[in-house]
């Protein structure tokens, strides 16, 4: 179990607050190039954001609460899996188009998370995609991301 718990809540709190302070710093530096009237508003916001980040950090360091020691993630491996799958999905859309990766996601994600009733997931995935194609592409003429299926179809002909 020890492997799967991941960082504690307190660590994530502090890392996130540090990230906010870093963003605030970046905003401050980047706006140096802008004319004064354009830079003023983001700079004020950045200063306040850094202040808030600081307060959150100090609070965490000074009052170590019971909850702070708890693991942040309920199930780290499954979370990482979801992140990887989602990133892969979006990347795959860029390469292979919308339909194939979407089908893979709708069937694959429940499968790897332990839901194996393909008799439900496969027809559902197909039906959803059919509905999406019908509404977005056929009726409303919104283009789908360019799809390999279409190229295949073109070459087969």
């Amino acid at each position: 179990m020890a492997v799967t718990t991941g960082p504690s809540r307190r660590i994530v709190e502090i890392v996130f607050a540090a990230a906010l302070i870093a963003v605030a710093g970046a905003v401050f530096v980047l706006s140096a190039d802008y004319p004064a009237e354009s830079a003023a508003f983001p700079r004020v916001l950045a200063a306040l954001l850094a202040l808030c980040g600081l307060i959150v950090t100090v609070r965490q360091l000074r009052h170590g609460t019971e909850a702070g020691g708890q693991p942040f993630f309920a199930h780290l491996p499954r979370f990482l899996l979801a992140v990887v799958i989602l990133v892969a999905y979006v990347a795959a859309i860029g390469v292979a188009g919308y339909l194939l990766p979407s089908f893979a996601l709708a069937v694959g994600l429940p499968f790897v998370l332990g839901y194996r009733r393909l008799a439900l997931t496969v027809p559902l995935a197909l039906g959803t995609l059919a509905a999406i194609v019908l509404i977005f592409n056929v009726v409303l003429e919104r283009p789908l991301p360019p799809d390999v299926l279409m190229h295949l179809w073109e070459t087969v002909r």
Binding site: L99, P123, L126, G127, L129, A130, V133, L134, N137, V138, L144, L149, M150, W153, E154, R157
Partner: peptide, 21 residues
């Protein structure tokens, strides 16, 4: 269901790729 999906996809595919040249 499968047939519905195929019909949908083919419809779009056919519309886009009626002719290559």
């Amino acid at each position: 269901m499968k047939r519905v999906f195929r019909a949908g996809v083919m419809g779009v595919v056919a519309a886009v790729a009626l002719s290559g040249s």
